[in-house]
Simulated scan of single mutants.
Amino acid sequence: MARENYTTIMEFKLVGFSNFPKLQGLLFAVFLIMYMNILIGNGLIIAITKTDPALQTPMYFFLGNFSFLEICYTSVIVPKLLTDFWSDNKNISFMACAVQLCFFLILGTTECLLLAVMAYDRYVAICKPLNYPLIMSHKFCVQLVVFSWIGGIPVQIGQTYQIFSLPFCGSNVLNHVFCDIPPLLKLACGDTSMNELSICVVAVLFVVASSLIILWSYIKIVSPILKLPSATSRYKAFSTCFSHLTVVGLFYGSAAIIYLQPRASATEETNKVLSLFYTMVTPMFNPVIYSLRNKVVIAALRKLLMK
């Protein structure tokens, strides 16, 4: 009987925002506009970092990759979410759910690593300006980006396999907007302590390690900036780090709230909103954050739009 129960769930039902039936049309419009802004904004950043001669530097090479990552990251979640607003069938197959989670985890790991790489780039640029072209050569930058993209693939594939190897029985209702680890573990039967332990290990391996690299980089950066002779020089140096620090704060802050809060205080509706914050809101504002205080990016955007 137990074995039969384990094999009955072949698909999950994503609840999403179906608890608000009268708001489906409005929510669809809001999320569609946000998604289009993400595609257009990050697409423009990719275009200018590839075509504008003034942006052919390591910093903008990383920024172009980061914008492409944001498009991929959001596209794993949003198309299915938009489809569910107009469909009575909100089911997602077992395999599709596994694929969505796997890509979500891989791209999330890539974002952590790429943010760490971008912090290291700022450290070298400010603390070792004379050796910057030598250290951050194009070959080394490509190697850093490739590692960021593929570094988490084996681990996250293994983690996804481990989660979907769990027996699922009883309810197949996934009260979330996409296939994520916490709501999936709630539906699993039996002991999930080993899965929770592996999640902690992976978090330390990628999230904590990348956070420490970012923290170390900016600790090293602060001292040389404060020693600059003029306030204008200090402001200019700090402004090159401001955009990156803002993105780091938004991404890690929202992710930490949802994954590190005590289970007793976590509500499923709150988790839905917070998960959309770091999967949609942050990618939507990234192009604005990186162009708002950057005259070079603004000039490149104007040039591209005029063409």
Rank of each mutant, 00 (worst) to 15 (best):
P183A: 13
P167R: 03
N175I: 08
Q162A: 14
V177D: 04
Q162E: 14
S165N: 14
L174W: 07
I181P: 07
I163P: 00
S171A: 12
I163Q: 02
Q162G: 08
F168D: 02
L166M: 12
I181S: 12
S165M: 09
F164S: 01
S171L: 10
A188E: 03
I163F: 05
V173R: 13
V173I: 13
C189P: 07
T160W: 08
C179R: 01
F168Y: 14
A188Q: 06
L185E: 01
P183W: 10
N172G: 07
V173G: 04
L166D: 01
A188K: 05
C169D: 10
L187P: 06
A188M: 06
I181W: 10
G170A: 05
S171V: 07
A188T: 02
G170T: 03
L174G: 08
I181A: 09
L184W: 01
L174H: 08
T160A: 14
L184I: 05
L185S: 03
K186S: 09
P182H: 06
H176D: 14
V173M: 12
L184Y: 04
I163L: 14
Q159P: 01
P183G: 14
L185Y: 03
P182Q: 05
G170H: 02
F178G: 00
H176E: 12
S165T: 04
A188Y: 01
F168H: 03
Y161I: 15
C179V: 06
L166T: 01
L166H: 05
D180V: 05
F178R: 02
Q159M: 15
L187M: 14
Y161L: 15
I181H: 07
P167E: 04
F164R: 00
S165I: 02
F168S: 02
H176A: 15
P167W: 02
S165F: 01
C189S: 15
L184G: 06
L166G: 02
L185H: 04
F164Y: 05
H176Y: 14
K186D: 12
S165W: 00
L174Y: 08
D180G: 11
A188L: 07
F168K: 02
K186L: 09
N175A: 09
L174N: 06
Q162I: 03
L187S: 11
T160I: 10
C169V: 09
C169Q: 13
G170V: 05
P182Y: 04
Y161S: 13
N172L: 09
L166E: 06
P167I: 03
D180R: 04
K186M: 08
C179A: 14
F164C: 01
D180L: 09
V173E: 14
G170K: 05
C189R: 07
Y161N: 13
P182C: 03
K186A: 11
V177S: 07
K186C: 06
P183L: 11
S171K: 10
S171I: 08
F164Q: 00
P182R: 06
G170Q: 03
H176C: 11
P167T: 04
I181F: 11
H176R: 07
F168Q: 03
L187H: 09
L187D: 08
V173L: 14
N175K: 12
Y161V: 15
T160C: 15
P167A: 08
